[in-house]
Measured scan of single mutants.
Amino acid sequence: WKITIYDQENFQGKRMEFTSSCPNVSERSFDNVRSLKVESGAWIGYEHTSFCGQQFILERGEYPRWDAWSGSNAYHIERLMSFRPICSA
């Protein structure tokens, strides 16, 4: 599993790669995730830290803005603060 997060939209700004769970992006000096690329595996992104709040399934691909992973939710969530890989047995 591999995911790359960015602190600006369209894959700009600070970037960081992960191959395992991140319970709080702010502990990695990110205020928020504004864009991301899922390089391999599937991940679950969460609205809040500690894997809480609205969940987003993140499959392999590029997500240049928050609405790319938020989709058409009843209330739009511009925040992604934690994530972890989906492990299959």
Rank of each mutant, 00 (worst) to 15 (best):
residue 44 I to N: 06
residue 84 R to K: 15
residue 49 T to C: 06
residue 46 Y to C: 04
residue 20 S to N: 12
residue 31 D to H: 13
residue 35 S to I: 00
residue 54 Q to R: 15
residue 68 A to L: 06
residue 73 N to V: 08
residue 26 S to Q: 10
residue 82 S to C: 00
residue 39 E to C: 07
residue 61 G to V: 01
residue 7 D to A: 10
residue 83 F to M: 05
residue 27 E to Y: 06
residue 55 Q to H: 15
residue 24 N to C: 04
residue 10 N to L: 08
residue 88 S to D: 13
residue 19 T to F: 08
residue 76 H to L: 08
residue 8 Q to V: 03
residue 48 H to G: 13
residue 44 I to C: 15
residue 71 G to I: 10
residue 7 D to K: 03
residue 13 G to T: 01
residue 44 I to Q: 08
residue 45 G to M: 11
residue 27 E to T: 08
residue 71 G to Y: 09
residue 17 E to V: 10
residue 83 F to Y: 01
residue 66 W to V: 12
residue 24 N to P: 00
residue 15 R to P: 07
residue 60 R to N: 07
residue 22 C to T: 05
residue 70 S to Q: 10
residue 82 S to D: 05
residue 11 F to R: 00
residue 77 I to V: 15
residue 58 L to Q: 00
residue 47 E to G: 06
residue 43 W to I: 01
residue 86 I to W: 10
residue 64 P to L: 03
residue 68 A to M: 08
residue 34 R to D: 03
residue 78 E to G: 13
residue 81 M to I: 03
residue 75 Y to L: 14
residue 16 M to Y: 06
residue 42 A to K: 15
residue 38 V to I: 06
residue 31 D to V: 08
residue 63 Y to C: 05
residue 70 S to K: 14
residue 46 Y to P: 03
residue 80 L to P: 05
residue 66 W to N: 08
residue 62 E to V: 09
residue 18 F to S: 04
residue 29 S to T: 07
residue 88 S to M: 10
residue 23 P to K: 10
residue 15 R to A: 13
residue 72 S to F: 09
residue 73 N to R: 13
residue 26 S to G: 09
residue 28 R to C: 12
residue 69 W to F: 14
residue 82 S to E: 03
residue 27 E to V: 06
residue 54 Q to P: 10
residue 28 R to Y: 07
residue 66 W to F: 15
residue 45 G to D: 01
residue 10 N to T: 03
residue 38 V to Q: 02
residue 83 F to R: 00
residue 52 C to K: 15
residue 68 A to I: 07
residue 1 W to P: 06
residue 29 S to V: 06
residue 62 E to N: 08
residue 61 G to L: 00
residue 42 A to H: 12
residue 50 S to Q: 12
residue 2 K to D: 00
residue 84 R to F: 04
residue 5 I to K: 00
residue 63 Y to M: 02
residue 79 R to S: 14
residue 61 G to I: 03
residue 25 V to M: 04
residue 4 T to M: 14
residue 85 P to K: 05
residue 14 K to D: 07
residue 11 F to M: 05
residue 66 W to G: 11
residue 39 E to V: 10
residue 58 L to R: 00
residue 34 R to F: 03
residue 39 E to W: 09
residue 46 Y to M: 00
residue 36 L to W: 02
residue 35 S to Q: 01
residue 18 F to A: 04
residue 5 I to A: 06
residue 14 K to F: 08
residue 7 D to T: 08
residue 85 P to F: 04
residue 26 S to I: 13
residue 17 E to G: 09
residue 89 A to C: 07
residue 73 N to S: 12
residue 11 F to G: 00
residue 32 N to E: 10
residue 86 I to M: 15
residue 13 G to S: 01
residue 64 P to T: 06
residue 13 G to V: 01
residue 11 F to C: 04
residue 74 A to W: 08
residue 46 Y to V: 04
residue 52 C to G: 14
residue 67 D to R: 10
residue 22 C to R: 01
residue 54 Q to A: 14
residue 64 P to A: 11
residue 74 A to D: 14
residue 43 W to R: 01
residue 84 R to L: 05
residue 33 V to M: 05
residue 77 I to Y: 15
residue 48 H to V: 03
residue 14 K to A: 10
residue 16 M to C: 11
residue 57 I to L: 13
residue 43 W to V: 02
residue 23 P to T: 09
residue 87 C to M: 12
residue 2 K to M: 08
residue 67 D to Q: 14
residue 28 R to L: 10
residue 71 G to M: 12
residue 1 W to F: 15
residue 54 Q to N: 14
residue 35 S to M: 00
